[in-house]
Design a protein around this nucleic acid. Structure first.
Lengths: 154, 154
DNA sequence: TTCCGTGCAAATGATTTGCAGGACT
DNA sequence: AGTCCTGCAAATCATTTGCACGGAA
């Protein structure tokens, strides 16, 4: 989980990034970046838009998308393809490596990590003379809540 | 890889499925289903549409989408969320399960399978009350060939 | 005066839905 | 008559782009 301190540090880095790129540290960008960088979980552009609106009703959806693009370029936020119909984002700093389970029914995302799997995939790669740079391991299915709902219906 | 025999068997099963549902075994459906069920790899609706068009120029894009939905309902074709902007499909029967290593340098794709990883991910899912429907495990990095080329250059 | 930042409206692209003409029962 | 099938056009929905105004250097 991202602490306020982490978010503050990330904000500084974002400001520096904008400066390096000759871009401005504006009100809307500050609002949007703060919310994105202090998110404690994955979020969608729509969610970030709603949070930003609550702080400043004049902020447009497009500015959210554009600021999100800048946050991704700066390396402070990662763009993830969890589901087909919308992008997900997550702040990068301070978060340990993890994989994802995605509920195909309610779209809920559960994080997991298993050192043994990480170790085994390194071994498999080595057997093929393959050197891993990064990897994706996603499990799609039904979360406990939706699984119970389905069982009840059946 | 799907053999012609596999495709033929799957076609029979699809015809039976339609019959059970009180639906018809029409020309467009026959064309589209044959192409989908004999695909040797993942494909998109657009690709299936193009293949179908080559066989019968009168087939509409919508019919491809609708037939694909029937194929998925019948359980003969799986719908996959590999990327965000379009759905992927693959015939279910005949192909053994496998994962992919993708060489970021030469784009070569190496298939692999590791039963121990499969088993561990089931255990992890169970710990979270999660029921896996399908999963993606992709390793990105350098294949043996490109790794050697890089070592030589370094 | 020349960028940059912004919101609005319109474009995009894959997919879905409304609708009307045909076909088969 | 009453379904089902189909293609076309239009609707959808998240995201992107065109445009014009306003502001800062």
């Amino acid at each position: 989980m991202l602490t306020t301190t982490d978010a503050r540090l990330a904000m500084d880095r974002f400001r520096q990034y904008l400066e390096r790129e000759g871009l401005s540290w504006t009100g809307p960008r500050r609002t949007i970046a703060l919310l994105a960088l202090s998110a404690r979980d994955h979020f969608t552009a729509q969610e970030l838009y709603e949070w930003s609106r609550r702080r400043d009703a004049s902020i447009g959806r497009v500015t959210v998308y554009r600021t999100l693009a800048l946050l991704v370029s700066s390396g402070l936020v990662a763009e993830r393809d969890f589901v087909r119909d919308r992008k997900h984002y997550e702040p990068i700093s301070g978060r340990p490596h993890h994989e994802h389970m995605i509920c195909v029914s309610c779209k809920r995302i559960i994080e997991f990590i298993n050192d043994e799997i990480e170790r085994l995939q390194e071994i498999v790669a080595k057997e093929h003379g393959f050197e891993i740079v990064h990897h994706i391991h996603k499990l799609f299915g039904y979360c406990s809540r939706c699984r119970k709902a389905r069982a009840r219906r059946a």
